[in-house]
Simulated scan of single mutants.
Amino acid sequence: MTKINAFVYQQLPLPERAVSESKQDHKSTVQGHSFAQNLEEEFGKLPLKISKHARERIQERNIHISQNEWNLIHTKMQEAQKMGINDSLVLTKDAALVVNTPNQTVITAMGLDETNTRIFSNINGTIVINH
């Protein structure tokens, strides 16, 4: 685990032991998978890392970002890194994410409805995704 800006993150995909433990902790749905299990499976397919804090916020706030959007976010994070941007705010049509570009990590996430009165600090760039 690595600590960035007071947040601890773990690289995805999670080790099998952690995945199986988390699956045992969640109640199964009719399809045999809980929302949390499906979310963990989707995170395992991502080209970037998502901190534990961000995973919890995405789940709690019921934020949905498609695989195509994640791929675009990853591409834009790489471009931002080449421009010397270390910490960035990513705005999509549904969410605001704070990311660390050198580590290709999502630090936290919130729905756009929560961003109306927020001040984002410790960022030196913004990425806007209009999908």
Score class of each variant (00 low, 15 high):
Val8Asn: 13
Pro13Tyr: 09
Leu14Ile: 06
Leu14Cys: 08
Leu14Lys: 11
Glu16Asp: 11
Ala18Lys: 14
Val19Trp: 10
Asp25Glu: 08
Asp25Trp: 11
Val30Phe: 15
Val30His: 13
Ser34Pro: 00
Ser34Asp: 01
Phe35Asp: 00
Phe35Ser: 01
Ala36Tyr: 05
Gln37Pro: 02
Gln37Met: 07
Glu41Ile: 10
Glu42Arg: 15
Glu42Gln: 15
Phe43Cys: 06
Lys45Thr: 03
Pro47Gln: 12
Pro47Thr: 05
Leu48Pro: 00
Lys49Phe: 08
Lys52Val: 00
Lys52Phe: 08
Ala54Gly: 02
Ile58Tyr: 06
His64Ser: 08
Ile65Trp: 12
Glu69Thr: 00
Trp70Phe: 14
Trp70Asn: 08
His74Ile: 00
Met77Lys: 08
Glu79Met: 12
Ala80Asn: 07
Asp87Lys: 11
Asp87Asn: 10
Val90Gly: 04
Leu91Glu: 02
Thr92Tyr: 11
Thr92Leu: 06
Leu97Cys: 02
Asn100Phe: 10
Pro102Phe: 04
Pro102Ser: 05
Pro102Gln: 07
Asn103Leu: 09
Gln104Phe: 10
Thr108Glu: 07
Thr108Cys: 10
Ala109Gly: 06
Gly111Arg: 04
Gly111Cys: 02
Glu114Val: 01
Thr115Asn: 06
Asn116Pro: 01
Asn116His: 15
Asn116Lys: 14
Phe120Leu: 03
Asn122Arg: 13
Ile123Phe: 11
Ile123His: 11
Ile123Gln: 09
Asn124Leu: 06
Thr126Ser: 15
Val128Ser: 14
Val128Lys: 15
Ile129Arg: 13
